[in-house]
């Protein structure tokens, strides 16, 4: 049934560090690769080598510019995938019971054999975490690499989601956010982890760590600058004569 569990034994999820993410899209590629070859229907592409390529992705990296009232604008890379919400609207709207939230670890999954591809779960998700695969006609979403994290055929170091394993910057963390003593929960507490669109009432499990404040740029940014020859404010010599001569021509000085 598509009734949400009252509570889950664990709340497995991701913590994404917006301070560390360099926007390399490696997580996007590794996600696409793993999830095309493993759990469920492959993530298809339409017209991949043509003029208008598009395809199914479970993880996409946006980039945003934040302009504070004072100071410099900051560029923030923003990976976005399913947040495995506690109050997941995508589960309750499903008419067939294909969408469900697991009691044991809180992962939101789609039973692709029962999915009719009506798309209503994607409509209900404010985050755009679900995409209908055009080749298979079923809904695809992040599985939190459920086929890796419990997979005893893999070396222990690989039993984490593909995106986390791949991230070269260490911007992605995986763990139990329901356990206040877990590393990810401590990280969230320490760095002030936040929810996306809290007003939607979805109670996302995944948290985002806000960018740390940037170093202040002082007036003098180069400590060697005072030791160097000053750049002439006023042109000297020939350039000075030329500057004055041009000023006298019709059109005048600027």
């Amino acid at each position: 049934m598509t009734e949400l569990p009252d509570s889950t034994e664990r709340k497995m999820g991701l913590v994404i560090d917006l301070d560390t993410c360099v926007g390399c899209h490696a997580c996007v590629i590794s996600c696409k690769g793993w999830n095309t070859e493993n759990y469920g229907a492959p993530l298809s592409d339409q017209n991949p080598y043509g003029g208008d390529p598009s395809g199914t992705f479970l993880n996409r990296v946006h980039s945003y510019e934040v302009q504070p009232e004072q100071g410099h604008a900051q560029l923030i890379h923003f990976p976005k995938s399913c947040l495995h919400c506690e109050d997941a609207p995508c589960v309750t709207v499903c008419p067939t019971g294909a969408s469900y939230k697991r009691v044991e670890d809180g992962i939101v999954l789609v039973n692709e054999d029962h999915c009719i591809g009506c798309g209503l779960c994607a409509w209900s998700c404010p985050y755009g975490a679900r995409e209908l695969d055009l080749a298979e006609g079923v809904m695809k979403k992040c599985t939190l690499c459920v086929d890796r994290i419990y997979n005893e055929n893999l070396p222990e170091v690989d039993r984490i989601p593909s995106c986390v394993r791949t991230c070269p910057a260490g911007a992605r963390h995986f763990g139990d956010l329901g356990d206040p003593e877990s590393d990810v929960s401590k990280l969230v507490a320490e760095r002030g982890g936040m929810d996306l669109m809290p007003e939607m009432g979805t109670k996302p499990v995944n948290k985002y760590l806000p960018p740390r404040p940037k170093d202040q740029i002082e007036d003098q940014i180069d400590i060697l600058a005072p030791l160097l020859a000053p750049v002439a404010e006023e042109p000297q010599g020939f350039m000075g004569w030329l500057d004055k001569a041009l000023d006298k021509l019709p059109g005048g000085a600027n």
Partner: peptide, 8 residues
Amino acid sequence: RAFTQWKT
């Protein structure tokens, strides 16, 4: 299958 989940 769409007739099964009338509860939610």
